[in-house]
């Protein structure tokens, strides 16, 4: 451990933890203070996710497809809410917000192939080369 900033950590933390863990030779790392500030955010995001779970459930009982005479409106609405929830999990819980560029580069690469996979699925129903469109059933 090259934690030269260890002394910068709050003194009360260090003494308190030293009492709990006499074998721990290490004080909290320099980013510990910042992490402590994030705890509230984690709870808030957890709450937002729970609320949006309820919203997804509620929205699924509104019969948009039938009211508007269209296919897949409920599906699109459900997937938009799910995507919003997933981006919160990714950005905050998985720390993608402010993550190193190396990881983002790998994820762009994955995203490319993931979208390619779903594009192939889509082309099975709507093939622009042979002009077949099977999207409405």
């Amino acid at each position: 451990m090259s934690d030269s900033q260890a002394h910068a950590a709050p003194a009360e933390h260090a003494t308190k933890d030293a009492a709990h863990e006499p074998h721990d030779p290490h004080a909290p790392p320099h980013d510990a203070h910042e992490i402590a500030h994030h705890i509230k955010l984690y709870w808030i995001i957890g709450g937002v996710l729970a609320v949006f779970t309820m919203i997804t459930v509620g929205l699924s009982y509104l019969d948009f497809d039938h009211w508007w005479g269209m296919h897949g409106v409920n599906m699109v609405v459900g997937m938009i809410v799910a995507s919003f929830k997933v981006s919160l999990v990714g950005a905050i819980f998985m720390h993608l917000k402010g993550e190193k560029p190396t990881i983002w580069r790998f994820l762009y690469f994955t995203l490319f192939f993931f979208l390619g996979l779903f594009l192939l699925t889509f082309f099975a129903y709507a093939d622009p080369i042979f002009g077949t469109w099977h999207l409405t059933r």
């Binding site: 933390h13 933890d17 709990h20 863990e21 721990d24 290490h26 004080a27 909290p28 790392p29 980013d31 510990a32 992490i35 402590a36 994030h38 705890i39 984690y42 709870w43 995001i45 957890g46 996710l49 729970a50 779970t53 999990v89 819980f93």
Partner: peptide
């Protein structure tokens, strides 16, 4: 979802050496 919060808190606790 709740467990996703608690696992981040477990990690944060280690970071804060608690």
């Amino acid at each position: 979802i709740f467990s996703s919060v608690t696992v981040v808190l477990a990690w944060a606790s280690l970071k804060m050496r608690k």
